[in-house]
């Protein structure tokens, strides 16, 4: 199998209709490889989140193709996409998106639960993921008791627990101080390198450039190599 786990070919996304159309992404073509961290950078409103949503199979492009693990998934219907997301993609969110009523461990277990992982395995996988992000001691804490950096590490643990080959991170350092932010990026970089994950990070934080394998610059919906 090729190293290209996720790619888009000639993808465009136009919002609106009836004479009022706003192009958010224009003819984007690029591929992301396993074992690497790809950063999509650009100013606010440049279309970064839209392209991330397309990569995450949360949004259908207006035109073009999305290829996941060698398979064209552009035309799959709404019922076919959730299992594909569960199996292939882990998400990391700018606002962490943790479940406030669940403990750290339970937040990680939810991802495994969605994959229907048996209890005997789930507990071990969740603990391993928390160990990876150095949060085992906080397993029974609730999100409200964690710092921003810790919350983001829980989000990462949730994304890696199920061993999805692709990790999509939306502004993972935006709500963190610079030191914690860089630690998070290093963590993602190590994950990509050690566990052959395909990591795509969307960010407008220019400091990330030095810590990723590849940078794609996006402006007014147009994407190009930096």
């Amino acid at each position: 199998m090729s190293d290209e786990t996720l790619s888009v070919v000639g993808v465009a996304k136009i919002y609106g209709g009836d004479g009022l159309s706003v192009p958010a992404v224009r003819e984007a073509t690029f591929a992301c490889r396993s074992g690497t961290v790809t950063a999509i950078m650009g100013p606010s409103g440049s279309g970064k989140t839209t392209i991330l949503s397309i990569l995450g199979l949360l949004l259908k492009p207006t035109s073009g193709r999305v290829v996941l693990m060698g398979k064209d998934v552009t035309s799959l219907d709404e019922r076919e996409l959730p299992p594909l997301r569960r199996a292939s993609i882990g998400f990391i969110f700018q606002s962490f998106n943790l479940f406030s009523s669940l403990t750290v461990l339970e937040n990680v277990l939810v991802a495994l639960q969605l994959q229907k992982v048996a209890k005997a395995n789930a507990m071990g996988l969740a603990e391993a993921a928390l160990t990876r992000v150095d949060l085992v001691k906080r397993a029974n804490f609730y999100p409200r008791d964690l710092s921003g950096g810790e919350k983001q590490r829980v989000s990462i643990a949730r994304a890696i627990a199920s061993d999805a080959p692709i990790i999509l991170a939306d502004e993972p350092t935006a709500n963190l101080d610079s030191k914690t932010g860089l630690k998070i990026i290093d963590l993602l970089y190590n994950l990509a390198e050690e566990r052959r994950k395909t990591v795509v990070v969307v960010s407008h934080d220019l400091r990330l450039k030095e810590h990723v394998n590849r940078v794609l610059w996006m402006e007014d919906g147009v994407i190009h190599e930096d």
Binding site: G56, R85, R86, A87, F91, F93, S95, F99, S100, L114
Partner: peptide, 16 residues
């Protein structure tokens, strides 16, 4: 609502 959206993003079906 945001948590339900997160669940859907993580691959939860509507019936869950």
């Amino acid at each position: 609502l945001r948590e339900f959206g997160t669940l859907k993003a993580l691959g939860a079906e509507n019936r869950m």
